[in-house]
């Protein structure tokens, strides 16, 4: 499992007072709908498995693109978050502060 997905999921969970599992799922869904090759998979379970495999290889720039994409803000608004930019800002801050994890978790 991606260390960065765990860390961002925990950060999101803390920011919106929700379960980490669901927050990781939200981030995973955002990745799935952001990436062309993942959108093409019609079987939901296979799409999830492929997304998790993709997430494990995501770089700092990949995560930055996902966090800054309108898709994440839209999803946050859909679940009732009043200030999605604030939450997005916190996630970006977490990504910046924890960027060395990509290197330290590389093998």
């Amino acid at each position: 499992m991606s260390n960065m997905l765990n860390v961002l999921g925990a950060s999101l969970a803390k920011a919106i007072s929700a379960e980490e599992l669901a927050c990781r799922g939200l981030l995973r869904l955002t990745v799935m709908t952001s990436v062309e090759q993942l959108k093409k998979e019609s079987n939901p379970r296979q799409a999830t498995i492929q997304t998790i495999a993709y997430v494990n290889k995501m770089t700092y720039q990949d995560w930055k693109t996902v966090i800054e994409s309108p898709l994440l803000s839209q999803r946050l608004a859909n679940i009732g978050i009043k200030e999605p930019p604030s939450i997005v800002g916190q996630l970006k801050q977490t990504l910046i502060e924890q960027q060395s994890l990509f290197t330290m978790a590389a093998h």
Partner: peptide, 23 residues
């Protein structure tokens, strides 16, 4: 000890309804 549960358990509907219910 991994804290992560099996991500594949939750569908999109389950994720969104869990989060909406929480908030």
């Amino acid at each position: 000890q991994p804290t992560v549960q099996d991500e594949v358990e939750l569908s999109e509907e389950e994720i969104m309804s869990q989060l909406k219910a929480r908030l």
